[in-house]
Design a protein around this nucleic acid. Structure first.
Length: 843
RNA sequence: GGGCGCUUAGCUCAGAUGGUCAGAGCACCUGCCUUACAAGCAGGCGGUCGGGGGUUCGAGUCCCUCAGCGCCCACCA
């Protein structure tokens, strides 16, 4: 047994024990364990191209506390760590970091090295070089994250890591997609889709966000054949050239006579019909709207349901097409050709003013506009061919089955379930998974080319599962040769990659090695726990439930814990743009990992929590107290060696019985993922233990004979239990104090559920400890109020209390005398606690 | 427009199924060098539990309503 330190300190514990845990394989998963012995966690793969901030620490530490509890309960914890490195965030980071951009038309350069400093203009490089840079940079980013996780003491098994772009993930992702395709759960379709003109890719419903934008209502004249006019209001006058109809509510008396007639558009004089539709709202604008292809998603609904023609003028790069559209034989096209949407709007407004078709000044408004969550310009709607996975948006049976899955899943906290339900109920399109990007898992499909070089989309060439993962840009389908690529009569590969969620939705399958390692899979899947943030219930959680339902007909996990938001010290949400992001490393250096973990664990499940340095200080103080209290108890000698059988004194039995209650409550709280409650109960008991119980029995414990042995034994048992009860929360300090007197890591010890304490102190009366502590408190109070030292001798203390409480006090009388330095103690029966203390005169 | 959550001492938060539930820590004040801990110990000050109504013998604790804050969703002419 190592010597007790003269002056215990937290310094150096993180380094010392991180290294020991790594060397000893403390958190290594035992893959011979059977499924019911395993506790498997579907850890969120952090986006490594994102920045490190306290939000990264908060939820992961809470999960780690739960993981450590399960491990001590005897479960084999399957706790892998993934890195989410595929997709647009990585592309963008690589572009900025190296000053490059991907241009698929540039040939591969095997000796390419990025410039030391990013240049002013982005350097165009080949797709393959670009992807290589993505891999290079994410590898660096992943190291930084791993270092952070080790610093805060995550008990992850570092042999079980994966990346969402690695070969195993790609294989799982493509295999799942091909099976979705074979079962009809995935399909391709040519349709209007929301489109980011900067990234030039389609985006999915789950990736949208509304942003308030300033705009203006423009009152514009449409012309009736009889010379009359109809005024419509629009925020997008530049789309007049793509107008295909006007629409009003069927019951709107103002426009009813016009249904079935036609009007001519301003500037261009195109004849369009006036039609009724229930979605037109009489009190919006002028009550009659123009339908364009496409200004917003309502246009798409109208276009589809009213079977209108498509008159697209905005191209995928966000600019008007250059050639004059054939449906605009007249009108000022040359002024608009090739301009951006913004430029075109300005010009059209000028032209409308000149022609007298603009009524009044434009009226400024602020309204919500759909953006890609990572994008900078409003989304446009373009028609393109995309891949979809069914999600229940247009399939009531699937939808209700998914709602049922949400009910079967145990949510912590439970109210988070409604976010899932609202999302499922509000889905309006299937899940668009294809992206016109570069760094992602390719859609593993090829197509034959017709004699004219046209792509035969209806005859997709599907690779064999054994050949996965494949990259269609280099993969040659059986029966073809590379020379036939992109040649008439030959073949071509699907150029798209999958959305990052299309892969992330398979993290249980990836982590558990679905199909790659059926033995491991059987021992770990379906998993036990999915911890994650609330903002990705609609994406990650939902899509994971969906994929598992399709592939396995089961939930991916039985439980999910949803953490709260991190707010900055002023209770504002942290975000890069506000510049109030708090980075974890300096805080870890200043307060220590246990203190930061304590702060994180004080944030309840699903509860938004502000960064609070005061709470971290409290955590640090707790860890130090744990060192000092342990040192004291162990310094009495015999604590470890005295057997439980020696606990005989009523006060000693009482403390063990009281702690048993705490242990039982902590256990049931943690069983329900309520780590905060467990920590709270253990912590408050611990301080009472130090301040009252230890003070009461200290004198006796120094002595000899059975009463002294009883105190030392009780102190030892209580200490062992307390150390273990704290282990999930402050793993470094608890491991340190455990090592002073025990063999093996504390994190592999049996969880103290109260059984051992009941056995040792079952006859104890917890109330006894409380009564004695109250009396000691009164004596201290008398001394403090007299401004005397607590060492002051008491000539006589007279305590009045109820008979029951006096009986309890008598059982602890000698401890109370010694702790209070009472020469004489008089006990009188009365109504309640009263005390009269006569202090020894000052010297 | 709809939904969810929050609103308890100056600050951060506990208060499971309504009856010692008005608490803890921080901060502040007053003391104490007490041989585990002065990064400590003892004590004190401090709140009509967001507003209003209701149910009940009794409500931070249940119901209704209003307000503020945060988040999520919504077809944004």
């Amino acid at each position: 047994m190592p010597e007790l330190p003269e002056k215990p300190t937290l310094e150096g514990l993180e380094k010392k024990w991180s290294a020991a845990w790594e060397a000893d394989g403390t958190y290594r998963f035992d893959r011979t364990a059977s499924r019911d012995e395993v506790f498997s966690i579907d850890t969120p793969p952090p986006t490594v191209s994102g920045s490190l901030h306290m939000g990264s620490v908060f939820g992961y530490v809470q999960t780690d506390a739960n993981a450590r509890f399960r491990r001590m309960q005897g479960r084999q914890v399957f706790y892998p760590m993934g890195w989410d490195d595929n997709g647009l965030p990585t592309e963008r980071r690589v572009q900025n970091y190296y000053g490059v951009r991907c241009d698929p038309s540039v040939p591969f350069d095997p000796g390419f090295e990025p410039p030391a400093q990013p240049g002013k203009d982005a350097l165009p490089i080949s797709r393959r070089n670009f992807v290589e840079l993505c891999h290079r940079l994410t590898a660096e980013d992943e190291k930084v994250f791993e270092q952070l996780w080790r610093s805060v003491g995550l008990s992850v098994d570092w042999d079980l890591t994966y990346a969402t772009i690695d070969e195993r993930s790609q294989r799982a992702s493509q295999r799942a997609f091909l099976r979705n395709l074979a079962r009809g759960e995935a399909y391709a379709s040519e349709a209007p889709t929301l489109w980011d003109v900067d990234f030039q890719t389609a985006v999915a419903q789950a990736e949208l966000e509304d942003r308030d934008q300033t705009a203006a209502y423009h009152r514009v004249r449409f012309h009736r054949p009889d010379g009359g006019e109809i005024l419509i209001e629009t925020t997008r006058p530049e789309l007049i050239p793509s107008c295909v109809a006007l629409v009003a509510h069927p019951d709107d008396e103002r426009f009813r006579p016009l249904f079935g007639t036609t009007v001519r558009t301003p500037l261009f004089g195109v004849e369009v019909p006036v039609l009724p539709h229930r979605l037109a709202e009489p009190d919006k604008g002028s009550g009659i709207a123009m339908i364009c292809t496409f200004g917003d998603t309502t246009d798409v609904v109208w276009w589809r349901e009213l079977k209108l023609p498509t008159r697209t003028i905005v191209q995928r790069n966000g600019r008007f097409q250059t050639a004059r559209p054939e449906w605009l034989p007249s009108g000022p096209w040359d002024d608009l050709a090739g301009s951006t949407v913004k430029q075109a709007q300005r010009r059209i407004v000028e032209l409308l003013g000149e022609s007298g078709e603009l009524v009044d000044e434009p009226r400024p408004i602020t309204h919500p506009v759909k953006f890609y969550e990572r994008g900078d310009r409003p989304l446009e709607i373009v028609t393109s061919r995309q891949w979809y996975i069914r999600n229940g948006a247009s399939d009531p049976e699937l939808r209700s089955s998914l709602l049922g899955a949400g009910t079967d899943l145990a949510w912590h906290p439970d109210f988070m379930r409604v976010r899932y339900e609202h999302w499922v109920e509000g889905l309006n399109t299937d899940w668009l998974i294809s992206r016109q990007r570069f760094f992602g898992v390719p859609i593993p499909i090829g197509y034959p080319l017709g004699p004219g070089g046209e792509i035969l989309h209806d005859q997709p060439i599907v690779p064999d599962e054994a050949s996965l993962p494949v990259d269609p840009s280099s993969h040659v389908p059986p029966g073809y040769t590379e020379a036939q690529r992109n040649q008439p009569g030959g073949f071509t590969g699907d150029a798209d990659v999958m959305d990052t969620w299309a892969t992330s939705s398979l993290t249980p399958q990836i982590a558990c090695a679905w199909e790659d390692d059926p033995d491991l899979f059987a021992r770990t899947f379906p998993m036990d726990l999915r911890p994650q943030g609330p903002e990705i219930i609609r994406t990650w959680l939902f899509s994971t439930v969906l994929r598992s339902r399709f592939e396995h007909g089961s939930l991916p996990w039985t439980d999910t814990t949803i953490n709260g938001w991190i707010l900055d010290p002023d209770r504002k949400k942290m975000s890069k743009s506000k510049g109030n992001v708090v980075t974890p490393m300096p805080l870890l250096d200043e307060h220590g990992p246990d203190a930061v973990r304590y702060w994180a664990c004080r944030g309840g499940p699903g509860t938004d929590t502000a960064i609070d340095f005061g709470v971290m200080k409290v955590g640090r103080r707790l860890a130090i107290k744990l060192l000092n209290a342990s040192k004291f108890v162990l310094g009495l000698g015999g604590a470890g060696a005295d057997s439980a059988a020696a606990v005989t004194e009523p006060l000693d039995l009482a403390v063990l019985a009281a702690l048993a209650e705490v242990a039982e409550e902590a256990t049931s709280a943690l069983d329900g993922y309520d780590y905060t409650r467990a920590l709270d109960r253990v912590e408050s008991f611990f301080w009472r233990f130090c301040d009252d119980y230890v003070e009461l029995v200290k004198g006796r414990a120094y002595g000899e004979g059975p009463p002294a042995a009883s105190a030392r034994a009780a102190l030892g048992i209580a200490l062992s239990n307390l150390q273990r009860l704290f282990a999930p929360f402050v793993p470094f300090a608890t491991e340190e104090v455990w090592s002073w007197w025990q063999e093996g890591s504390i994190h592999r010890q049996p969880w103290p559920d109260g059984t051992e304490l009941r056995a040792a102190g079952g006859a104890g009366q917890p109330a006894l400890l409380a009564v004695a502590a109250d009396a000691l408190g009164e004596i201290r109070k008398a001394k403090t109020e007299a401004k005397r030292s607590l060492r002051t001798d008491v000539v006589r203390a007279t305590i009045t209390d109820t008979p029951e409480r006096l009986a309890a006090l008598r059982a602890a009388e000698s401890d109370l005398r010694e702790a209070g330095r009472l020469a004489e103690l008089v006990l009188l029966e009365g109504e309640g606690l009263g005390i009269d203390v006569e202090l020894a005169p000052p010297e």
